[in-house]
Design a protein around this nucleic acid. Structure first.
Length: 919
DNA sequence: TCTCTGCGGAGAGGA
C-alpha cells in the first residue's frame, strides 16, 4: 500500500543490528493523509470513506539508502512511501520501506526531467540554468533542429524535406547567431546520417515499434518530461553533442532513467534505455573506441531508479525553503566545468557560497535583499503553478470541467495525417461546454485520462467553429480525442526569474541607482510642444523625451493614454532613438501600434516589402501568430525564412513592439534599445516589467495603479507593480493625465473623488455633458428607474455560489429596455465580478458581457454592472476596490448599478457608491 | 470556486 502525509518530525538516522547485519535506518513521524493512502495501483479513491477521521501520527521507518532522503526531509514537507509494509515495533504500529518501495518528498512539486539531469551534473548548474536561462547559442539551436528532424524521420517523413523546413523554421535564431542556412543544413545532414544509418542498420526489425515525443507526468514521483522517442516501450534519447567514450554520459543515463521510472509507474516497465549520439563529424566517430554505432544501450536497474528518485528528492527539499545550492552537494569537479566562471560570478555578486569559489564585488545589501525576496516570491508562484498540474489527477473529469479547466466527453470524429507526418485530430464537444481553452493554446489532449491514459501535448486549431461544437487539434502522435485539459506552464515564472537575474546582475549601475532608491531620476533637455490642446499629455511626452533614467505616466480611464504613447514614440524615433514598445497584453501592444499608425507612422505602405527593408525607420511586431491582431499581421516578424533576412529585419527596426513576456524570449534578450516604453505597467509584476526595462538604457512606464493590479497566484511581493512602487518613490518623475475623454460629468464624479483626489476632469464641455439623447434615444422611453445617467436597481435577488440568477434576469430586462428605447446593442456592455455570473447573463442577452478584469481597457456608451453579492461584501473580489473603479469607468453616457442595497450599505466604500448612484 | 494573460509544452548542448 501507499502511505502519504505531512512530516511532523524527523529523527536522526542510526545504525542498528538486524538479522541481516548492521543496517541504517531513519524514522519519520507523519500525519497520514487519509485520502493519500491507497493500494499500490488503480483504485485510488476506494477508501475515501475513512476521510472523516483525523488519523493519529504514525512512524515511518526508512531503511538503507532511503536514509539519504530522510537527511533532506523537514517537518512540514509531504512524504509519500510506496509499497509500504505495516509493522509493529515495541507496541507501536507504523510503516516501513519494503524491497520495492520508493520514498518521495513533496510529490506535488513537479521537477522537469532536464532539471534532474542538470542537478546530477551539479546542483549549482541546476540553479544557474534556472536563474539565467539558456541564452541563444548555436549548439543548442542546432541540437533542437536535429531533434526535430529525428522526430520527423520516425514519423516517416522525407529527410531532405524535413531538414529544409526545420532549418527554415529556425531562421531568425540562426540569423541572430550569424549562421548561413546552407552551412546549418550540411551540419544537420551529417547528424541525421548517423541516425538514418542506425535506423537502417538492421538493428530494427519488423517488430520494432516506434513513437516520437512522449509526454509523461508523474503524480507519484513528482516528475514531468517529454521523451524523444520510445522504441519497443523503452526510452530513446538523442544527443547531438560529442561523446567519444564507450559509455553514455552519466547525466544522459539519468535523463533516460527518469522516463523509464515514469513508464514503470504506468505499468509498462522498461529495463533498458538507449542513447543515440549523432556526434559532429566523421573524425569524432573514428575516435570512438572501436564502437562505430552511434547508439549506446544500457540497462535500467532498480538501483538506478532509486537513485533518480533520491536525486529528485534533493531538488524538492532544496526548493521547499527556496534555498540555494552551493555545489558541495555533489562531487562534480569544478575545474572542468564550463559554467565555472558564471558560477563564481553569481556567487560573488550575490554573496553566495560556492564550491567553485566566488569572484567579483558583491552587489549592495539592498539589492541582495531584493533579489532574495523576489526569488522566493517567484518560487512560491511556481509552486502555485504546480498545484494546477496536480489538479490534473486530483480532480475528477467533471470537477475539471466545472472549473473551466477542461473540455470532457468529447466525441472523436476522426484523424488524418498532415504535412510533416504529424496528425490532425477532430472531435465534437457537448454543445454548452465552456472552458478557459482558446484557439492557438497548447493543451493536453487525451483519450479521457490525461495522466494514466494516453496524452499528448497538442495545439488547438479550432474551438467552436460555425456549428459551435467543433474541436480540431494538431499533435505529433495520434490518439482518440476525448478530453482536452489546460496544460499549466512555468514559462512565465522562468522568464520573470531571468529578468530578475538580468536586472540585478547585468543591469547598469545608473539604472540600479534609480531602481533601488539611491538616486532620483534625472531629466534634461529642452521642453517642446508636442501636443497643443492638452497640457498634461504634452508634459508627459516631454517627461519621456527628457528622461535620463525613467519617466512615469499615470493615465486614469479615458485620458488618451494610447494617443500619448504613440506621440511619445514618434518624438523619440524622430530624434534617432531605437524604441521598444511593450505591454502586458497583446491587445494593448496592438492598440498602441494602431495609434502609431493613425499618426502616420509605421504604415505598411511606407514599409518596403519584407526582406528588403534597408532603411531603419520601420516597425516590427514581435509575437506569436495567434497573439497578434489580424490588422497588425503585416508588421509581424515571421521567424521562418532565410537567416540573414530575418535577423536584419529585427535588428534594423527602429520600433519593436512585443509583450513583456516576449521580451523574455531568447531572440528579444539579444536586442537592445535606447528607450523601453511599457503600457499597462500597473498590471505587471515587477520582474515582468524588468523583462522589458532590461533591454533599454531608459524606460517609460505608463499605467494606472488605481486600476487592476497584477494577477498572481501566490500572495506576495509580486502583487505590487514596479510602476506603483516608483510613482510613490518619485512623484516628481511622474505626470498624471487629468483630462478624460470618455465619461459624462455625472458618471466620472465618484471615481474622480474616490480614486484621483478629484483631479480627474472631463476634457471638454461636450464630454461632460454627453447624454443618451446623443444616441438618438428619448429618455422618456426608458423605465423610470434608469432614466438618470447613473442609476441603481435592486432586484432583490440572492447569491447562489458566484451567481445571482434573479439579478441576471433583471439585468436582461434592463438591457432590453435600452434596446427597445433605441440603443444599439453594440453600444451596451454588462460587467460582473464572477465568470459564473457572466455566463448566467450571457445566456439571457445578446450584448457584450464580461468580467471586470476583461473589460479593462475598453468602454461602452451604456454599461450595466451586476454586483451579485447579497448579505455582505466579503470576499477577495470585492475587497480590492480598484476593481470597482474599472467597472464604473467603462460607461460613457449611462451607467446602471444592479445589486443588493443592504449588502452594499454594509460596507463604507460601497455605501458611498450607493449614495452617489441614488443622488 | 475570485479575478487571468502570456509563452513553443520541455528540451535543445558546451568540454
Amino acid at each position: 500500500m501507499n502511505v502519504r502525509g505531512e512530516i511532523i518530525e524527523v529523527r536522526e538516522p542510526r545504525e542498528v543490528s538486524t538479522q541481516y547485519g548492521e543496517r541504517s535506518l531513519a524514522e519519520l513521524v507523519i500525519r497520514p493523509d487519509p485520502n493519500g493512502s491507497s493500494p499500490p495501483s488503480g483504485a485510488a479513491n476506494s477508501d475515501r470513506s475513512t476521510a472523516a477521521v483525523t488519523p493519529e501520527p504514525t512512524t515511518v521507518t526508512l531503511w538503507g539508502k532511503w536514509t539519504h532522503t530522510a537527511e533532506h526531509a523537514q517537518a512540514g514537507m509531504e512524504l509519500l512511501l510506496t509499497d509500504a509494509e505495516e509493522n509493529e515495533y515495541q507496541g507501536n504500529v507504523g510503516y516501513t520501506t519494503s524491497k520495492n518501495s520508493y520514498v518521495v518528498l513533496e510529490p506535488g512539486f513537479l521537477v522537469n526531467v532536464t532539471d534532474v539531469r542538470s542537478w546530477v551534473q551539479c546542483p549549482r548548474m541546476y540553479y544557474l540554468n534556472k536563474l539565467s536561462g539558456i541564452p541563444l547559442n548555436y549548439p543548442v539551436a542546432k541540437g533542437t533542429i536535429v531533434h526535430e528532424v529525428f522526430g520527423d524521420l520516425l514519423r516517416g517523413r522525407d529527410l531532405e524535406e524535413s531538414i529544409d523546413e526545420r532549418v527554415a523554421e529556425a531562421g531568425l535564431e540562426l540569423g541572430l547567431l550569424g549562421r548561413e542556412a546552407e552551412e546549418v543544413r550540411d551540419e544537420v545532414r551529417r547528424n541525421a546520417a548517423a541516425i538514418e544509418g542506425w535506423l537502417s542498420q538492421g538493428t530494427l526489425t519488423e517488430e520494432d515499434d516506434w513513437r516520437s515525443e512522449y509526454t509523461l507526468i508523474s503524480p507519484t514521483f513528482g516528475i514531468k518530461g517529454r521523451a524523444d522517442a520510445l522504441r519497443r516501450g523503452a526510452p530513446v534519447e538523442l544527443k547531438t553533442g560529442k561523446n567519444t567514450k564507450r559509455d553514455p554520459r552519466f547525466q544522459d543515463k539519468i535523463q533516460a532513467a527518469c522516463y523509464a521510472l515514469m513508464l514503470e509507474e504506468r505499468g509498462v516497465p522498461a529495463d533498458t534505455g538507449t542513447l543515440l549520439y549523432t556526434k559532429n563529424t566523421a573524425l569524432d566517430r573514428n575516435e570512438a573506441t572501436g564502437d562505430l554505432s552511434p547508439a549506446k544501450e544500457f540497462s535500467v536497474g532498480s538501483g538506478l531508479l532509486d537513485f533518480v528518485v533520491r536525486q529528485r528528492n534533493e531538488i524538492a527539499a532544496m526548493e521547499f525553503d527556496s534555498s540555494v545550492p552551493t555545489g558541495y552537494e555533489a562531487d562534480a569537479k569544478c575545474e572542468y566545468c564550463f559554467e565555472k566562471d558564471t558560477c563564481m560570478v553569481v556567487a560573488g555578486r550575490l554573496g553566495q557560497e560556492s564550491k567553485a569559489g566566488a569572484i567579483g564585488q558583491a552587489v549592495p545589501e539592498e539589492e541582495r535583499e531584493y533579489f532574495d525576496r523576489f526569488y522566493r516570491a517567484l518560487e512560491e508562484e511556481r509552486r502555485e503553478t504546480h498545484t494546477e498540474y496536480r489538479k490534473l489527477w486530483e480532480q475528477t473529469a467533471a470537477e475539471r470541467a466545472d472549473a473551466d479547466r477542461a473540455l470532457v466527453n468529447l466525441d472523436p470524429q476522426g484523424r488524418r495525417q498532415i504535412e510533416g507526418g504529424r496528425w490532425e485530430l477532430r472531435a465534437k464537444k457537448p454543445g454548452d461546454a465552456v472552458s478557459k481553452l482558446r484557439e492557438g493554446d497548447v493543451a493536453l489532449a487525451s483519450d479521457g485520462d490525461p495522466v494514466e491514459g494516453h496524452a499528448e501535448l497538442c495545439r488547438i486549431r479550432k474551438l467552436g467553429g460555425t456549428a459551435g461544437d467543433e474541436v480540431v487539434v494538431t499533435v505529433d502522435e495520434p490518439l482518440s480525442l476525448r478530453r482536452l485539459d489546460v496544460y499549466p506552464s512555468e514559462i512565465s515564472v522562468d522568464r520573470m526569474l531571468t529578468a530578475l537575474h538580468d536586472a540585478v546582475l547585468k543591469g547598469s549601475e545608473e539604472r540600479k541607482d534609480v531602481l533601488f532608491g539611491r538616486r532620483a531620476p534625472a531629466f534634461s533637455g529642452e521642453t517642446r510642444t508636442y501636443i497643443d490642446n492638452n497640457a498634461a499629455q504634452n508634459e508627459a511626452v516631454n517627461l519621456a523625451t527628457r528622461a535620463e533614467d525613467c519617466a512615469l505616466i499615470h493615465g486614469p480611464p479615458g485620458t488618451g493614454k494610447t494617443y500619448t504613447i504613440a506621440r511619445t514614440i514618434r518624438a523619440l524615433v524622430d530624434r534617432g532613438d531605437r524604441v521598444l514598445l511593450s505591454a502586458f497584453t497583446n491587445r494593448a501592444v496592438d492598440n498602441a501600434l494602431e495609434a502609431l499608425r493613425e499618426q502616420g507612422y509605421g504604415d505598411s505602405a511606407e514599409q518596403s516589402s519584407a526582406g528588403n527593408r534597408t532603411q531603419s525607420d520601420y516597425v516590427v511586431r514581435f509575437g506569436t501568430e495567434n497573439g497578434v491582431r489580424e490588422d497588425m499581421q503585416d508588421l509581424r516578424l515571421v521567424k521562418e525564412g532565410e537567416p540573414n533576412d530575418r535577423a536584419a529585419e529585427l535588428n534594423g527596426a527602429s520600433v519593436v513592439a512585443a509583450t513583456t513576456s516576449s521580451c523574455g524570449s531568447r531572440p528579444m534578450r539579444e536586442q537592445s534599445f535606447d528607450v523601453a516604453l511599457v503600457d499597462e505597467a500597473s498590471q505587471l509584476t515587477e520582474p515582468n516589467t524588468l523583462a522589458a526595462v532590461n533591454l533599454a538604457d531608459r524606460f517609460v512606464l505608463v499605467g494606472d495603479h488605481q486600476q487592476l493590479p497584477p494577477v498572481v497566484r501566490a500572495e506576495n511581493d509580486l502583487t505590487e507593480s514596479l510602476f506603483e512602487r516608483l510613482i510613490e518613490a518619485y512623484p516628481d518623475a511622474s505626470v498624471m493625465l487629468d483630462r478624460q475623454y470618455r465619461m459624462s460629468q455625472r458618471i466620472q464624479a465618484f471615481a474622480s473623488a474616490e480614486f484621483y483626489d478629484g483631479a480627474l476632469r472631463p476634457a471638454t464641455g461636450e464630454v461632460a455633458g454627453q447624454h443618451l439623447s446623443g444616441l438618438g434615444v428619448d429618455v422618456d422611453d426608458l423605465p423610470p428607474e434608469i432614466r438618470d445617467p447613473v442609476a441603481f436597481v435592486d432586484p432583490d435577488g440572492s447569491r447562489a455560489g458566484n451567481t445571482n440568477p434573479r439579478e441576471a434576469d433583471r439585468v436582461a430586462e434592463l438591457v432590453r429596455a435600452y434596446v427597445d428605447a433605441g440603443v444599439d446593442p453594440d453600444d451596451i456592455g454588462v460587467i460582473a465580478p464572477f465568470r459564473a455570473q457572466v455566463a448566467e447573463i450571457t445566456r439571457r442577452v445578446d450584448v457584450t458581457v464580461d468580467t471586470v478584469d476583461r473589460f479593462q481597457g475598453s468602454s461602452k456608451e451604456v454599461v450595466l454592472v451586476s454586483f451579485v453579492a447579497t448579505d455582505n461584501m466579503d470576499g477577495p473580489i470585492f475587497e480590492d476596490t480598484r476593481r470597482v473603479n474599472v467597472a464604473l469607468t467603462r460607461a460613457k453616457k449611462a451607467l446602471v448599478l444592479v445589486g443588493d442595497a443592504s449588502a452594499l450599505e454594509s460596507d463604507p466604500f460601497y455605501g458611498r457608491m450607493l449614495d452617489w448612484a441614488r443622488r
